[in-house]
């Protein structure tokens, strides 16, 4: 038995110390989610919420094609953003890991700096870039490269995806960096000296070894982007609203909290399942391949 250091031996001591935090989680996290679950079985009549038990909201979520369509659109957006950040983030993480040791902390700190600037400010910065008279299109016109605004740089799905990628890229780079950095380069050298080409070495040796970091990064990017709603309303066009906007509007102008709750619970369930799948994949990857 190891010495356990500073832990109150008696149960009361521990409870006293952990109690407030546990209470905070229960009151402000678990109970609200439970209430939301309860609301999702209620219904609204003349803007009064009737607390009965009905499955109507869920039936509506799964039968009305617009809800499913927006959910698919949200998933498509988060997959796109995860893809973009992975494609940029993996080589970036690799490049930072191969830098001289004294530069690494500085580069990592630099990576976090934009993350410390306000979320809304960064979205605003991206918003300034897009649109017919936005910085990109006006610059292209000023330089004489185009005579009318390019559609690609208007407020559209691309702008939304690029903005989200800009917001979440650091969250992809850092976990990958951590798994690439601790990789034993002798294994990589062994593979190439045994005659494996660079592409094969990457897919058979390097990628499997860094898979836990990749999966963690994907979780960090995928989950928040699936719940996004402000970015599409600020840098997207009128047709670019996603599932998150739908949820938010039920608590705003549409004023149907029970339906909004059902929409949110459905998303929550989907995300929890995805989180489980991805963490067990990551566990499998770190246990089964790396050791």
């Amino acid at each position: 038995m190891k010495l356990s250091g500073l832990v109150p031996r008696r149960l009361q001591g521990r409870a006293l110390a952990l109690g407030p935090v546990a209470a905070w989680y229960i009151v402000f996290f678990l109970i609200p989610l439970a209430l939301m679950l309860r609301y999702s079985f209620a219904f609204t009549e003349q803007s009064r919420i009737q607390f009965v038990w009905t499955l109507d909201n869920y039936r509506q979520v799964f039968e009305d094609s617009i809800y499913l369509r927006l959910l698919v659109k949200s998933l498509r957006l988060s997959l796109t953003v995860t893809g973009i950040t992975l494609l940029i983030g993996y080589p970036a993480a690799w490049a930072i890991a191969r830098m001289p040791d004294r530069h690494k902390p500085k580069l990592l700190a630099l990576l976090i700096v934009p993350w410390w600037a306000s979320y809304i400010v960064r979205i605003f910065g991206m918003r300034m870039g897009f649109g017919n008279t936005g910085i990109i299109n006006s610059t292209l016109k000023w330089l004489g490269l185009t005579d009318k605004p390019l559609e690609f740089f208007q407020y559209n799905f691309t702008a939304v995806a690029l903005t989200e990628a800009n917001l979440y890229l650091p969250l992809m780079i850092i976990p990958i960096y951590m798994s690439v950095e601790r990789m034993d380069m002798r294994i990589v050298q062994a593979a190439s000296s045994l005659g494996s080409g660079p592409i094969r070495t990457f897919f058979r040796v390097i990628l499997p070894l860094s898979l836990p970091g990749v999966l963690t990064g994907c979780i960090f990017v995928f989950l928040p982007v699936t719940g996004t709603f402000i970015v599409p309303s600020l840098v997207g066009g009128p047709n670019d609203i996603v599932y998150g906007n739908l949820i938010a509007s039920q608590f705003g102008e549409s004023y149907n909290w029970p339906l909004g709750s059902a929409l949110a619970i459905a998303l929550l369930a989907l995300l929890v399942v995805m989180l489980r799948v991805m963490t067990s994949l990551a566990r499998w990857a770190s246990g089964g391949v790396a050791q």
Partner: peptide, 15 residues
């Protein structure tokens, strides 16, 4: 940290 703020922000609003 992991769940979208949209979901539990609204849950708190309900509370």
């Amino acid at each position: 940290l992991l769940l979208p703020g949209l979901i539990w922000g609204l849950a708190l609003l309900i509370l």
